[in-house]
Design a protein around this nucleic acid. Structure first.
Lengths: 346, 346
DNA sequence: GTGAAAGCGCTAACAG
DNA sequence: CTGTTAGCGCTTTCAC
């Protein structure tokens, strides 16, 4: 690849404006403490020369990079199969942009990549990291914490090993789940089944907990494991129907799962919502609006989660020594509310 | 946000290994021209100290960044609604990683962002750019070419203004399209309709051209405009059915569109494929495998497109003065083949 | 083959 | 308020 063409330096601008490099630097960085006429002259010189600061030189002295890494683990599975991460990225990007930070995307596919990511983060190339760690046993979070970079996690990490101080943003999975099941119960449904997500992710576990909160010690055969995919939803729905033909409602761990369940329900001749009411989770528009019939679901504001993660990283609580307890001693998780969106299935 | 903790420098490693900074530098950068025992000593020192080169310092002198920007315009519309960009990103990421390059993600949402991106690219922060420009009238490509950064476009740009030398990677949309229509014709279908994509994108235009290549001057009422979304597919399908109740096949511009069309077909009581054969484009697995019935479609290897874009940027033809004609004078577009994947709808 | 020295372009004390 | 002066950590001639 080609080298970047040589661009004008501070020196050049200074010469043109007839001032010192330091003055130009001051103006470029906000212009405080420089008298108006000079500011003006420098601005013009910058303009005329098309000067853009050299970030490398700046970083070298400031030790800041104005860049944040976004680490997404295991794209092979879900990533981009549903729009989840895309939306999250959008939120992150907006917030970072507003703070003049760049987004360095790190996608990982396995153990080798973990080492690579850890090395990169430890290398101090970025000011912080936003990490999506999907699985309970993922070694990545540990590596990352070891790297000593301020980090915010997307979704509650599974390894709450008591260290506290882990910063994360999550939806109120448990509460939303309760809401869903209560809604179903309010509709008069009594045999409410649940298709879980991949239970090695806290979001799935939390949603299952929410279901149990409301259902108490209901028939355990009403719960079947899914994996957040339509195919998993189909499989689980078939299983459930065979096992409990009398079920009259299904709460699916996400919209994709619900779409699979819906397909099986139709195939088996159950009317939705007359015979079986269905409710999903996520409110993934392209999915939820186009199932047949349109899906009632629990909405989480995914883009906002992304934005919040970035904000937390940039202004966050005690970012100096992330990983320790804060002064308050509290683990700093932020949980966003969910809302029920009613369409046609429940 | 916190500053990056201070890490060991070249100097420290040199001291520890009992050599000069220059020697350490040589070893770190491949170790050519350094005698084996010394290499060994330095390696150990690096290891023990956990030394990682400071990229900013290196860039400052080499003027290279080992970083590539990926610019995705207008996320609001399609991006991440279908897995297209995600897959592409994955391919890009893999290739960049293999070349030790970082991926800087630039998402844009409007005119303001354009200026921002142009400034960033012109600022020489990255060694090159991978750009997805969706719309014919997008000003972004122009701005980017003006920034003087080596660039590879994803999808054939619409503004082939005769300058030549534009490097891009695209699927054989037109050929794939012909293939689809011929397949339908081979099945004995005669009234083959086409639901287009958003026609301000070259991929949609090319697919329409392919359809016409085969259909010649067929009934123009068999073509209805869509927009690459399921909703657009539904709308267009309804229209088509009203206008030409005798149609016996539909070629949709992408799988999402086909899924919408399928829904309407079912709703109107047409059996697929008996009454109406349907074929899509993309082979977006989560969509194509789970339509009802599973969708026959034209596959394009999206991840490979991404990988190829990155490869082209990194080793590309005459990258020094991108934008000019190459020695051969040819515009350097790379077009990837497509294949027909037969499932149940055609 | 190895070391010494000179910057890369910028910011941050510190003087003036 | 503005200019002068040191480096930031690294690569790269250029001698030895």
């Amino acid at each position: 690849m080609a080298e970047t063409a040589s661009r004008p330096t501070l020196e050049a601008v200074a010469a043109r404006a007839g001032v010192s490099r330091a003055t130009v630097s001051r103006v470029v960085n906000g212009g405080d403490g420089v008298r108006e006429p000079l500011v003006e002259r420098v601005r013009r010189a910058v303009e005329e020369l098309g000067y853009v600061p050299n970030q490398a030189a700046r970083s070298l002295v400031t030790k800041r990079h104005d860049a944040v890494a976004v680490v997404i683990a295991e794209p092979e599975t879900r990533v981009f199969a549903d729009p989840f991460f895309g939306l999250q990225l959008r939120g992150i990007s907006k917030e970072l942009t507003a703070h003049d930070n760049q987004l360095v995307l790190l996608l990982t596919e396995g153990r080798d990549d973990h080492a690579r990511v850890a090395r990169y983060l430890a290398g101090g190339h970025v000011d912080g990291a936003l990490v999506f760690s999907l699985h309970l046993d993922d070694p990545l979070p540990g590596l990352i914490r070891g790297a000593g970079v301020p980090t915010v996690f997307g979704g509650r990490p599974g390894w709450s090993d008591g260290t506290g101080g882990v910063v994360y943003v999550d939806s109120d999975n448990r509460g939303g789940s309760r809401n869903a099941v209560r809604h179903l119960a309010g509709l008069g449904r009594r045999r409410i089944a649940h298709i879980t997500g991949a239970l090695d992710q806290t979001s799935a576990a939390d949603r299952l907990d929410g279901y149990r909160d409301v259902m108490g010690d209901a028939d355990p055969r009403l719960v079947e494991q899914g994996d957040f995919t339509p195919a998993g939803g189909e499989r689980a729905m078939r299983e459930l129907l065979d096992r409990c033909p009398d079920l009259d409602a299904v709460f699916a761990a996400n919209d994709l799962t619900a779409s699979g369940a819906l397909r099986v329900l139709r195939e088996r001749g159950r009317r939705v919502p007359e015979d079986v009411a269905v409710i999903g989770f996520d409110d993934m528009l392209p999915v939820a609006e186009h199932t047949d019939p349109p899906l009632t679901t629990i909405r989480q504001d995914i883009e906002e989660m992304g934005r919040l993660m970035a904000r937390l990283l940039l202004d966050g609580p005690d970012p100096r020594r992330h990983g320790e307890s804060t002064a308050a001693g509290a683990p700093t998780g932020v949980v966003l509310p969910t809302t029920l969106v009613r369409r046609a299935t429940a």
